[in-house]
Structures are given as structure tokens and as C-alpha cells.
């Protein structure tokens, strides 16, 4: 934490002498403490999943939805400051609506990614605003490029992914995604044009279960906290190209699949999926104040 006490980390849009914008880096910290979100790009669509911590027994089960719809064919999930996520989604909806008004067709996912990227980036330029405290995973199917998945970070950069994870459990989730996608990929040649998404053999229906498993696995480091899981999908075959929450039965099936594979894992005492997740809390005291060096 060389940033603290230099004075260069107190305002957004200010560079430090070595060329960093600390306020954006701090925004990333808000994301890293957030609940885990996961997205997978499959052969026939995309799937999103998110962990929902049950902070009180008084919460109504199954409500307090986190996954949102940007346009009827695009879904979005995010980790970090949830109200910031709602702000971003509202912007996405405006962009999608304005695109439709002008071009008379649904906004392509890559075009939306570009516009949202610019919007988030603009929030790193001025000291009158703060950056977005979220990393968003969004995607869907469009007529031009089929299933697409993007992850957008607080600095405004976005990348296309075949599997993306963010939030507290991102490291173990990403490790699992890599294994999963490698297993279901016919030919890993990154130079090959994969716009038809032919190389990934995974179907959304199976990915729903895998996402549940990954979120359960990523939650392992946080075991004492109870949680719910929310999963949505968007696929031409399963949802006629619309982004929807998965049906209740499928969710239940996925959860029991996740619990089952996890209990097998515990039996065999697998310990290789554990990464160090406790970064950035060392210099903070009980009140959340920062110790000055």
C-alpha cells in the first residue's frame, strides 16, 4: 500500500508520479470483497450465476434478485457495490433502447460492451465523480455473432471471455472455469476464427449445473456464511434468444448436483483449489480506519 499518505490517492482522475490512478484501484478492492459472480459462454448461449449471502434469516428466500436484464437478449451480473451495478444496467438499457430506435434491430453484444466501456471509463476521468465499484459480467446471443460474453472492469476495460468470474471467490472459480472449458473444447487454437463458437462443446443446460458447482466451490473459503444461488441463461434453443432466470426445477437440480460433487470432493480431501484470498486487509483496524505509516 505505497499509495497511502502520498496524497495521490485522495481524488479520482489524478495520476501518481508512477502513472497510476489509485482511486480506480481502490474501486477494484470493492469488487474483490463482493459476492462471487460467474459467466460462461457456451455453444448455444450464455449462462450467469451469482452467490447471494443470506445476511439475515428474515430475508425472503428467492427474492432480492441480483441478475438483471439489459435488453431482452442480454443479461448482466456483477460483483461489488450493488447499487452501482444497477446504475450501469440502467445505462445499458438506455443504450440498448437508443440503438433500437436508430437501427431498428437489437443491439449487438459487442456494441453494448463498447458503449458501457466508454461510460465506465468516463467515470475515471473527472474528480466530480467516482469510478464504478463493480466488475460486470454481461452477455447474450445476437444474430450476428451468436453467444458472446464480456467482463467490464472499473477502469473501463472490457474483454470477451469464454468463462469469466469476479468477486471474492474469483480465483478458485477461474481455476475451475479453465478446467471446465478445456475439457469441453475440441481444438484450442486461439488464432482460429471462433465466431460460430464451434469449438466449445458445452451446452447451456449443462453449464447451469457447472456454474452452481463452481459457485459452491468458490464459496468454500467463506464456509460459515449461508448463501443462496441465482442462475440465469440466454440461448436460442432454451429460451428463444431471451435472457431469463432458469426454471425452478433446473435450479434445484443444479444445486443438488453442486452439493453432491462438493461432498465427494470433501471425502477425497482435495486441497489444491485453495488460493490466498485475504489480500488488502492487513493495514485496516477495527473501525475500518487506515493506519498511517
Amino acid at each position: 500500500m505505497t499509495s497511502i499518505g502520498t496524497g495521490y490517492d485522495l481524488s479520482n482522475s489524478v495520476f501518481s508520479p508512477d502513472g497510476r490512478n489509485f482511486q480506480v484501484e481502490y474501486a477494484v478492492k470493492a469488487v474483490e470483497n463482493g459476492a462471487t459472480s460467474v459467466g460462461i459462454r457456451c455453444q448455444d448461449g450464455v449462462v450467469f450465476g451469482v452467490e447471494k449471502l443470506i445476511t439475515s434469516p428474515l430475508l425472503v428466500p428467492g427474492k432480492n434478485r441480483k441478475i438483471q436484464t439489459i435488453d431482452s437478449h442480454i443479461g448482466c451480473v456483477y460483483s461489488g457495490l450493488i447499487p452501482d451495478g444497477r446504475h450501469l444496467v440502467n445505462r445499458g438499457r438506455d443504450e440498448a433502447a437508443s440503438f433500437k430506435k436508430i437501427y431498428h434491430r437489437p443491439i449487438p453484444v459487442d456494441a453494448l460492451a463498447d458503449r458501457l466501456g466508454q461510460y465506465v471509463q468516463a467515470h475515471t476521468l473527472y474528480n466530480s465523480v467516482r469510478p464504478f465499484g463493480i466488475t460486470a459480467i454481461f452477455g447474450g446471443v445476437d444474430d450476428v455473432k451468436g453467444p458472446q460474453l464480456y467482463m467490464l472492469e472499473p477502469n473501463g476495460s472490457y474483454w470477451g471471455y469464454s468463462g469469466a468470474a469476479t468477486g471474492k471467490g474469483r480465483q478458485s472459480a477461474r481455476a475451475e472455469l479453465e478446467k471446465l472449458i478445456a475439457k469441453h473444447t475440441k481444438n484450442i487454437d486461439i488464432n482460429e476464427d471462433d465466431t460460430d463458437n464451434k469449438t466449445i462443446q458445452l451446452k447451456v443446460r449443462d453449464a447451469v449445473k457447472e456454474i452452481a458447482r463452481i459457485i459452491y466451490l468458490a464459496h468454500e473459503d467463506n464456509k460459515e456464511k449461508e448463501f443462496e444461488i441465482e442462475i440465469s441463461w440466454c440461448s436460442n434453443e432454451e429460451t428463444q434468444g431471451k435472457h431469463k432466470l432458469v426454471p425452478k426445477e433446473l435450479l434445484e437440480e443444479a444445486v443438488s448436483f453442486a452439493k453432491e460433487t462438493l461432498s465427494h470432493l470433501e471425502d477425497s480431501d482435495d486441497s489444491d483449489s485453495d488460493d490466498d484470498n485475504n489480500e488488502g486487509s492487513a493495514t485496516q483496524d477495527n473501525e475500518g480506519d487506515i493506519v498511517l505509516e
Partner: peptide
């Protein structure tokens, strides 16, 4: 027709 389609999309926003 466009207004009605927007109306339908908006109604689906965050509506459980």
C-alpha cells in the same frame, strides 16, 4: 408498435 414493444421490454426489467 415500437412504443408497445418498448413498454413490454421495460415491464420485464427487474420484475420478478
Amino acid at each position: 408498435e415500437q412504443i408497445l414493444s418498448d413498454l413490454e421490454i421495460e415491464n420485464n426489467y427487474d420484475n420478478s
